[in-house]
Design a protein around this nucleic acid. Sequence first.
RNA 1: GGACCGGUAGCUCAGCUGGAUAGAGCAGCUGCCUUCUAAGCAGCAGGUCAUUGGUUCGAAUCCAAUCCGGUUCACCA
Length: 643
Amino acid sequence: MSVVPAIKNAAAAAVQALYQQAFTAADIAVNTTKPEFEGEYTIVVFPFTKFSRQSAEATGQTLGQYLLENHPELIAGFNVVKGFLNLQIHHQYWTQYLHTAFANKTPGQKPANGRKVMIEYSSPNTNKPLHLGHLRNNFLGYSVAEIYKANGFEVIKANLVNDRGIHICKSMLAWQLFAHGDTPESTGIKGDHLVGDYYVKFETILREQAEPIISRVLEGDFHDFEDAEKERVQKLFAALQKPEVHNDKEKSAKITDEIKELSRNKTEIMQQAKIMLQQWEAGNPEVRALWQTMNGWVYEGFDATYKRLGIDFDKMYYESNTYLLGKDLVEEGLRKGVLFRKEDNSVWIDLTADGLDEKLLLRGDGTSVYMTQDLGTARLKYDDYQMEQSIYVVADEQNYHFKVLKLILEKLGEPCAEGIYHLSYGMVELPHGRMKSREGTVVDADDMVDEMVNTAATHTEELGKVKGFSDEELRELHNTIGLGAMKFFLLKVDPKKKMIFNPEESIDLHGFTGPFIQYSHARIRSIMREFSEEELADLESYTYAGELLPMEKELIMLCEQFDGILEDAQKEMSPSVIANYAFLLAQTFNSFYAKKEQGKYIYSVRDAETADRKKLRLQIASLTANTIRQGMKLLGINVPERM
RNA sequence: GGACCGGUAGCUCAGCUGGAUAGAGCAGCUGCCUUCUAAGCAGCAGGUCAUUGGUUCGAAUCCAAUCCGGUUCACCA
């Protein structure tokens, strides 16, 4: 058991014995001791004064004395400042821990706990390449999966590919109309980018064709529309003329947007895309063949990107296989009376009692919507794996969708409902706001990686510390650093917060960054390289017996916290917990490394004052390096031996 | 308008299950390479923790109200 839980247990038992009060370990606050006081961990004693009928000071004394007498192996001394009981942990606890842990290559790894979770992430559309937003999603999903594994869970990494629908048809149609048979091979363009280019082409044509229609509507000419749509457009136009709307920028923009949307739907190219979608759904062989071909190009592109990013999956789901699911669930829901049918034959669920709205599940013509597919897919996943938790890594703009998804599954009595969890993360924004594909401000994932790797290469070159590296080793190093910088940048922030990325400023390589931590690791490894295999093997049986110097103790203490950090990261589903920790650990080692008194490096390993001290510091170096490496690995980041 | 999320140093963020004098990084300014890697270390400067009120021995943290920003409330996905 780690120290902090040990202290909490001991304190809970002490409170029980001293005051006959049932305090659980979880109710006891234990912090690290402020540097100006003596001790390592501090118990806050104020909560006990209610029944100790003593001052906080006296209560602290009593509790401290009790702990000292009953846990001499753990507590070596204490002092009380106001209501804070500062505990000195027995130095043998630290050296023992160091002895057992320093050579462990996977610190914090817990044995299998028999629990199974699925994590769905990435989930790209096959009509365009990945962008910066996907990178946050991918890194987050991958890292959370690794963190779960480290905590003993069995994890299924799943990717639900959105490989069908109107947006795919847009790329397909534009390719058919304008590509003259171009392929990734003929153009040398990566498949996903090639397909994405035709998506952009489609949008350009669409805009051109929509322009005159929009102008006509705004001039009061509605001849492009018929029946209900005409009525709708007329209504919107009329609303726009009202002075209270005219003067409200937000409202008029909203109405104008709706007019634009209706107009876009009326364009010839959009009509063609819709026909293509119908043909796809009807299984038209030509359309299906084109779809297969173009998706194939995209998958080749995605695979290359995933491989480069170090992202992988255990299970792929394709929407073309799942988009019809969910209808059974709707039928069952109707029978159970959970759902109801309206006059136009559409099927709904009434969530007004839960403070939400009515939600459509089947259109009047019997076709399904996004929600229906997700209901069916949730059941499919559960049938496949019976996992206790199903995590969806999806941006926070879909918070409402997932709230509703879970609620409907609960109402339908589906066993998968309880485990549904939306890991909602904030969007990556540019300094001027969201990325918009229509405005061409989307930051492409492949470009981004290239740029970071180049930056890393340039910087490595400038520092000139890589003599003797082969070209292959250099390439690998640049990748490790560039990707490390990018991953760390996107993972160091709490997932639920949105984050700003400024493409003008490249991601830093100094300070609170991946490369800083990678550098610290390389530096430790460089220290260890000075020693022979025998010297290192010798450490296995060695336990340091003396007192520890402050920073020696500090490093051991920090590493000892890694177990708890991993648990926190898993509970909060937040890689940022580990990122912050890894930075603190690296920073602390750097201080240890550079600490100078009277012109001498007082924590030098090579020039340690005794042979014992040298072994101790080597063990500390090894422990720190292993902990940093493992922490970074859980973020999906490699650490180099040299840089 | 309803629901949800956010507001901490010039900038980007930790801290938020209440605990000691609110911390990092970047940017700015000082020092430190005859040193086990200076992608580093040490230091200076920078704060009405959005505002107001409440609960408490104690509030950046909990509650309420207000202000500001965002997302969402599609027969799109």
